[in-house]
Design a protein around this nucleic acid. Structure first.
Lengths: 195, 195
DNA sequence: ACCTGAACACCGTTCAAGT
DNA sequence: ACCTGAACACCGTTCAAGT
């Protein structure tokens, strides 16, 4: 996901930030440790970003691009059964968040990062719009009841996001009583598809 | 919500922490400012809590008790139309979170607070169980299709929680395209009730 | 244009000391 | 049992200075 030529300082800063987020969460991202891993001083960050905040927002935007691809790629392969693709996309979303919990929370739950910049907001909307497009494809193929696709997208994303957030907060696995998020997603799909 | 006799230091510490959470979020809660507002030194906190973390967890537990009341109280008044009570409880949940966003996130989204203590976890489960009881009452009155009530509770709480979290993160109001959480909750109730 | 080291104002936490 | 002030090791950010 690194964009430009090899081994620039900026790339190392981004890579170090991702690494620290994955290892110890957002609180582990100190400019001094980022600098250490990128082999620059702790002030070098300020030559590329206006603040620690802006550095985190940059990582969030890169991940939001990946998330959007998750939904757009889902439609491509065999669009004659888009409902199956929708299911897979939602389950992939669960896996996506679990693979990088701190980074997932960074771009959807972190209010500070959300406020940071208009372009982060824009990337988030683009990712959610991609899901709405996928849903519209299901409706066009008569595999999903008609109705506002953006409303259905909000319901589906809201549900999956909530399940993810509860699980990451440790609230889902608490008692064995509660089902796994996967089962709840299946329940939602059942409710949505039965006409 | 303060439990004991009037004007103890501990109560002032809790009150100051709630105040700071509401005013400036979790990052505004510094022990020095908490101490200042409680008119004690910034170290007095350590006579009542083992860490800043434990102080935040204590506030989270008090709020979780309130949240549980939201669901248990919903059932009491006129339980002959429990489905109406369920709808009201879910909408109250939206209002509950909006009234104290930082404190809501504290007990359901903050992974650090979640890990803090077994009793916080227990309070969270108790709150969610109260919702499951409400759902079971709807099923007993034949106003909701039968099926595992804990699964339905997970679906409903997951959805509302996700919508709240996206809104608090600023992702919902982004474009006017997206509906208000209230509308999505209505959509969910429609899907669940039609048999 | 990019990077550095010293300095500043903060923070959570610890500790010796007081009542 | 409760509270305090000084101190410690951190942190983000700023700034003068170097290339």
């Amino acid at each position: 996901m690194l964009i430009t030529q090899n081994g620039t300082t900026l790339e190392y800063l981004i890579a170090a930030t991702k690494q620290l987020l994955d290892e110890g969460g957002v609180k582990a991202v100190t400019l001094r440790e980022v600098g250490r891993r990128a082999r620059v001083s702790h002030n070098a960050v300020y030559r590329h970003f206006t603040s620690r905040h802006a550095l985190l927002a940059a990582v969030a935007e890169l991940d939001l691009d990946d998330l959007k691809l998750l939904f757009t790629d889902a439609l491509a392969p065999n669009s004659d059964i888009p409902l199956a693709e929708l299911r897979i996309a939602l389950l992939h979303l669960l896996a996506f968040a679990r693979a990088r919990p701190a980074r997932y929370r960074l771009f959807f739950s972190d209010a500070d990062v959300a406020m940071a910049d208009g372009s982060t907001q824009q990337k988030a909307v683009a990712a959610l719009d991609a899901l709405a497009t996928l849903i519209r494809a299901c409706q066009d193929a008569d595999e999903l009841a008609p109705g506002d696709p953006r409303k259905l997208a909000a319901l589906m994303y809201g549900t999956v996001h909530g399940l993810i957030d509860l699980e990451l907060g440790g609230r889902m696995q608490a008692s064995k009583e509660w089902s796994r998020p996967e089962e709840i997603v299946e329940l939602l799909l059942t409710l949505v598809t039965r006409t």
